[in-house]
Design a protein around this nucleic acid. Structure first.
Length: 426
RNA sequence: AGAGAGGUGGCCGAGCGGUUUAAGGCGCACGCCUGGAAAGCGUGUUGGGUUCACGCCCUCGAGGGUUCGAAUCCCUUCCUCUCUGCCA
C-alpha cells in the first residue's frame, strides 16, 4: 500500500496518478486519508501522554512499597482509576481509527509512472516495440488445440477425468518439452545473475496480504480447507515474501531471484474461444524472476528484466511485441508494467506470455522490507519488481503453431539440447 | 497425530510481579593505548510511532486477560526441539 508520506508530500501528483488509474473520487479519498492520519496522530499522542503518567505513578508506587510506606502507596493507587478509564477509551478510539485508515489504504491502488498512458482497457495499451518474423504457414495451418491431439502430447480429457477443466496432462514429448523449457528458462536466468529458489506453492494469509492478493482477491486463488492457506497464483508471492519483515544489507542489493513453480488460478468467469486450449488454464508452469532494488536503481532494474525476457523470446525465435500497459489495464499494485506478447500463427492471435512490473514501495510497505542507506539513521523501504520469464502454456502453444510443418513440429534449435529431439512427429 | 520442553536484542544466555533503564558474554562500530598490531580500557550497538529538537510512547513469537505495575501469572494461537506414532 501507499505510504502516508506520499499523501502528505505529493498530494497533487498522487491525485493525478489515481485519475490515470481510473480510481473514482481521488480528491475525496486522499482528503479522508489525511484526516484519518491526523486523527490517528492526535489520538496516539493523547494516549502516550496518559501512558507516561500512569508509568510514572506505577514507579512511584513501586518505590513506596519498597520503602514500606503502604498507606501512601494506597493513596497514590487511587489516582490510577481515572487514567485507566481514559486510556481504555483512547486505545479503543486509536485502534478503530487505525483500522479504518488501514482498510482505506488497502483500497487505494499504486500510482502509475508518468510514462503510463491513459486508457480504459487493454485496447489502450501502447505497443512500444515489435520484433521477430511472423511465420508463413500453409492454408491448412492448425491451432495448437488440434495439434496436441494430432501428435498426442497434451491431453485435456484426461485432465478432466483427474481434476476438471483447465488441468491438462502433458504426455511423452509434450511432457519433455515442458521440462526442457523450465530448465532452459532457469539456466538463462542463472546466467543473467538470478539465484535460483524453489519455494512452497502453498502460502499463508500473511503472504497473500503482503504481495497484494489479499484482502479481496481471494476469489482468484484456490484456498485449502482447514487452514488459511492458498495455492499460489504466481511464484511472485512466495519469493517476494521470503523478504517480508527484513532489513537487507545495502551491499547485498540488488537481490535477484528466479524460481520455477506451478501456478494456480481459479479464473472464475472467463470462458470463450479466446481462452481455448492452452490459452488459459487453472494450473500452469512458470519461471518467475524477482528483484529487490534500491529506489534509485529500480527503473534500471526493470529495463534489465524486460531485456532478459526479450532475449529469451528471441532465442526461441518467436514474433514478439512489447506493450506498455495503460492506466486502466495496470494491475492494482503496479507502478508500471510491460507485457510481452507472442504471435501465435495457428490461431492468428497475440498471446501474453510475460508481464514485468515495478511496484516501487507499494509491496515493500506491506512486506516491511527495508534497508539502511549508508550513513543514514532511519531505514528506508526498498522497491520490489517481478516478471514472468516465462509462463509456459502460451509459449508451448506458439512453438507448436508457428513451427508446424506437413511432417511434424520443429523444435527451436536452442531447445534441442534440453528436450533431446528436434522434431515432434506422429 | 499424541506426550513433554521451549521461544528474550545481530548471536549466545540470565531474569520468573516493582532500582530491568533487559544482567553477563560474543560479535560489530568508533575512540584511547601502540612504531604498527594483538591484548587491555572506554563509548555505542532491536525495530517502530510522535516531535524542529529534547523527550515521550510502544516492542521479550503473536493476540487477549489479571494487576497501580507483566519478559515474569492466566487464557488462546503460531512456531521450534525431544520422544512416540505415521510416512516419501
Amino acid at each position: 500500500m501507499l505510504q502516508i508520506n506520499e499523501f502528505k508530500e505529493n498530494k497533487e501528483a498522487l491525485i493525478a496518478g489515481l485519475k490515470v488509474k481510473n480510481f473514482p473520487n481521488p480528491e475525496e479519498v486522499v482528503e479522508k486519508v489525511l484526516t484519518l492520519d491526523a486523527e490517528r496522530r492526535a489520538t496516539q499522542q493523547a494516549n502516550d501522554d496518559v501512558s507516561a503518567e500512569s508509568n510514572s505513578i506505577s514507579k512511584q508506587i513501586g518505590m513506596l512499597m519498597r520503602e514500606g510506606k503502604k498507606e501512601e502507596a494506597e493513596q497514590v493507587k487511587a489516582k490510577t482509576a481515572v487514567l485507566k478509564e481514559e486510556s481504555k477509551k483512547l486505545q479503543e478510539k486509536l485502534s478503530s481509527v487505525e483500522e479504518e485508515l488501514q482498510q482505506l489504504l488497502y483500497t487505494i491502488p499504486n500510482i502509475p509512472h508518468p510514462s503510463v498512458p491513459e486508457g480504459k482497457s487493454d485496447e489502450d495499451n501502447e505497443v512500444i516495440r515489435e520484433f521477430g518474423e511472423k511465420p508463413v504457414l500453409s492454408d491448412d495451418k492448425k491451432p495448437h488445440w488440434d495439434l496436441i491431439k494430432e501428435y498426442d502430447i497434451i491431453d485435456f480429457e484426461l485432465g478432466n477425468k483427474l481434476t476438471g477443466a483447465g488441468f491438462p496432462v502433458y504426455k511423452g514429448k509434450g511432457a519433455r518439452l515442458q521440462r526442457g523449457l523450465i530448465n532452459f528458462f532457469l539456466d538463462e536466468a542463472e546466467k543473467a545473475g538470478y539465484s535460483e529458489v524453489l519455494p512452497p506453492i502453498v502460502v499463508n494469509e500473511a503472504s497473500g496480504i503482503a504481495t497484494g492478493q489479499l484482502p479481496d482477491k481471494e476469489g482468484q486463488m484456490y484456498q485449502l480447507t482447514g487452514h488459511d492457506y492458498y495455492l499460489i497464483p504466481t511464484a511472485e508471492v512466495p519469493i517476494t515474501n521470503m523478504y517480508r519483515d527484513t532489513i537487507i544489507n545495502e551491499k547485498d542489493l540488488p537481490i535477484k531471484n528466479a524460481g520455477f513453480t506451478p501456478c494456480f488460478r481459479r479464473e472464475a468467469g472467463s470462458w470463450g474461444a479466446h481462452v481455448r486450449g492452452l490459452n488459459r488454464l487453472h494450473q500452469f508452469d512458470k519461471v518467475e524472476i524477482v528483484q529487490i532494488a534500491k529506489p534509485e536503481d529500480s527503473m534500471a532494474a526493470l529495463d534489465g528484466m524486460v531485456e532478459h525476457v526479450e532475449r529469451l523470446l528471441k532465442k526461441l525465435g518467436l514474433p514478439v511485441r512489447v506493450l506498455r500497459l495503460c492506466g486502466g489495464d495496470l494491475s492494482f499494485t503496479s507502478h508500471i508494467t510491460y507485457d510481452m506478447e507472442v504471435y501465435s500463427a495457428g490461431q492468428d492471435q497475440w498471446l501474453e506470455v510475460s508481464s514485468v512490473s515495478n511496484f516501487l514501495t507499494y509491496q515493500a510497505n506491506r512486506l516491511k522490507l527495508r534497508y539502511r542507506p549508508e550513513g543514514e539513521k532511519k531505514t528506508q523501504l526498498l522497491h520490489t519488481l517481478n516478471g514472468s520469464a516465462l509462463a509456459l502454456p502460451r509459449i508451448v502453444a506458439t512453438i507448436l503453431e508457428n513451427n508446424q510443418t506437413a511432417d511434424g513440429i520443429n523444435i527451436p534449435e536452442v531447445l534441442v539440447p534440453y528436450v533431446g529431439f528436434d522434431k515432434i512427429t506422429k
